[in-house]
Design a protein around this nucleic acid. Structure first.
Ligand SMILES: Nc1ncnc2c1ncn2[C@@H]1O[C@H](COP(=O)(O)O)[C@@H](O)[C@H]1O
Ligand SMILES: [Zn+2]
Length: 236
DNA sequence: GTTCTAGAAC
DNA sequence: GTTCTAGAAC
């Protein structure tokens, strides 16, 4: 039974258009902001250049009020400026740094760290994420092709499905990594049967010789010497 | 992931 | 000279 329904709060075309207008407004605002920040930095550097020897690398805080950088999606899920829609299971947000004209992220409300933590019971949820993505792009009616998938090696925490139009026309697309992460096997299509391979946990934390589990690397290292024949504690 | 920027490449 | 790219950010 599909719980997803078109309601006034979800995927009406009017609402979609509204969110896209927000995209444009926010985006130009963001660019203006970045330019302003850059201008301020330039001014500051000029002043410092008047006093030689006072130059030092600008210190930057590594964590912010919203937590470490790789936890940013958690806050963005509840950011009304980014949220496109939500139902009982999922939230869809606009990607904060869209790599194409349309770029959304679909996140389960129930916190799942990454693909490797998925279990067979999650399959209906994954199907639902894909289904509402298709509903969204259908409602948007952009005439653009879309792809729906996961990054094989994500940087951001919390499982998220990329919904990205295939124009790749965006100032945020800047690096080879950006390109390749959406246009090689790095991008795992949600509907691809190979998808299941990406859900396998690769960290097993066991000895490579005898499969004894270990909890810390020092513990592993003291165990490893037991496998060295005629161990004399010498190296090289 | 992004930002910033030094040094490479053009 | 400008453009591009890769690495640090503790
Ligand atoms: N704070 C944020 N809010 C929303 N989207 C973000 C945020 N930080 C990064 N992103 C996007 O999240 C995606 C994470 O990529 P990945 O971890 O490779 O799947 C990228 O497309 C980023 O543009
Ligand atoms: Zn081409």
């Amino acid at each position: 039974m599909c719980v997803f329904m078109f309601t006034s709060n979800s995927l009406t075309k009017t609402n979609c258009i509204k969110y896209l207008l927000q995209t444009t407004a926010r985006f130009s605002h963001q660019r203006a902001h970045q330019q302003a920040v850059r201008g301020m930095a330039t001014n500051k550097r000029k002043n410092e250049d008047d006093k030689p020897g006072t130059k030092k690398p600008a210190s930057r805080t590594v964590t912010s009020a919203s937590g470490p950088w790789n936890q940013g999606l958690k806050a963005s899920m509840n950011d009304p400026g980014l949220r496109v829609m939500a139902d009982d299971q999922c939230v869809i947000i606009r990607d904060k740094y869209p790599k194409a004209r349309y770029h959304f992220l679909v996140l389960p409300k129930r916190s799942i760290p990454n693909l490797k933590k998925l279990v067979p019971n999650d399959i209906p949820l994954l199907t639902h994420m894909y289904d509402i993505s298709k509903e969204l792009t259908a409602a948007l009616d952009t005439g653009l092709e879309f792809r729906y998938g996961y990054h094989a090696v994500p940087s951001m925490s919390l499982l998220h499905l990329h919904v990205v139009s295939q124009d790749f026309d965006s100032p945020c697309l800047k690096t080879k990594k950006h390109w390749n992460s959406f246009n090689t096997e790095y991008f795992i299509d949600a509907e691809d049967e190979k998808f299941i391979l990406a859900t396998k946990e690769l960290y097993v934390d066991k000895c490579h010789k005898c499969s004894k589990p270990f909890s810390t690397i020092p513990a592993l290292k003291s165990h490893l010497v037991s496998h060295i024949p005629n161990n004399t504690n010498k190296s090289q």
